[in-house]
Computed example of a mutant assay.
Amino acid sequence: MIQLLAPRLRLLALVFALGAATCACSATPGAKALDDVRILSDDALQGRAPGTPGSAMARAHILKRFGEIGLSPIGTSFERPFSYARRDGTKVDAINLVARIAGTKPGGKAMVVSAHYDHLGVRGGEIFNGADDNASGVAGLLAVAEAFKAQPPRHDVILAVLDAEEGGLRGAHAFVADPPVPLPRIALNINFDMLSKNPRNELYVSGASPFPTLKPILDKVAATAPVTLKLGHDTDADGKQNNWTNQSDHYAFAAKGVPWVYFGVEDHPDYHKSTDDFATIPQDFFKRSVATVVAASLALERDLDTIQPPH
């Protein structure tokens, strides 16, 4: 039997400590990224499977961070519920979280930054905490949100923290089926999925091959990135299994013809294992990875008007 009480008390202590700070936002975007990963991958959240109490606890933390950063909903609520059926026919009620940072030139193109917050839950009596997959991506998204609040974008930036990615990109498909702004306005999706574990100091960015207008922007970011930022994993050149086009939430945007960029690390021994815990994250690499995706997001928004879908 899994013992829940102690982890829950640890999580409450962490949330209390964070809330006791006079200002949770930092002048440096990403300063709280490690705290975000630690909380989202705590045992108390039981692996954040959709429709579970642990998923609700994850949302509570993310919404707390939305408030600290000063984000605004589109409409009356950050929460966008949707439902789907598992293979056995059981219904799951899931929830995406969506916020917007208004651009200084409203009404034009918009950019969506996404990361999924769900993971595999409890299997065989073991908790699959998903620290890298994908608490790390959510932390990166929150750091990007902090950066755009500090440096207001010209275009609307929509932050989409998506549910039920592990079960078939369900949250992303729900988002594009009922987008918060007209889909033709969305000029780019930037997706984060696994940002924290790579022994070679490498972070990959995919999308430049299908969308060549992205390449000069990403090459410029890579030239000064604090990690080794490598372009690739977006063609079948090394086999279909190494083409990441359909392997995370950006694929739902790709299927609608929206240009996309995907940041992530290659698979590692903790991928989809119960060992994907906060304790196994190389913290220095993760901090530099977050700094890289923040810089890239700022650069991509600045040049958003140059990004074109393929003819």
Rank of each mutant, 00 (worst) to 15 (best):
D234V: 08
N242S: 08
K220E: 15
G207S: 09
L218Y: 02
N246G: 11
N246E: 14
N189K: 09
L188M: 06
K197N: 06
A223G: 11
T213N: 05
D234T: 06
S196E: 08
K215E: 15
G207W: 05
K230Q: 13
L203M: 14
D219H: 02
S196P: 07
N201P: 11
S206R: 00
I217G: 07
P199F: 02
D234K: 01
M194S: 12
L231D: 10
L214W: 04
N243A: 15
T213A: 11
N242M: 13
A222F: 00
P212D: 11
V221R: 03
S209M: 09
S209Y: 03
A187R: 12
L203V: 05
A187K: 08
G239S: 06
P216C: 05
K215G: 13
N201E: 13
T245M: 12
K220A: 15
A223R: 08
K220C: 06
D234I: 06
I190Q: 12
T213Y: 01
L229Q: 07
Q241Y: 00
V227C: 08
H233Y: 14
A208I: 04
T235K: 12
A208E: 07
V227R: 00
D234P: 06
L229F: 01
F192I: 09
D234H: 02
K197E: 11
I186P: 02
I186C: 10
L195T: 05
L203G: 08
I186A: 13
P180F: 08
H233A: 15
D193I: 02
A223M: 06
N189L: 12
V181M: 14
T224Y: 00
N242Q: 14
K215V: 05
L231E: 14
D234L: 09
K240W: 10
P184A: 15
I190G: 14
K230T: 13
V227T: 02
D219M: 03
L183P: 00
L183T: 03
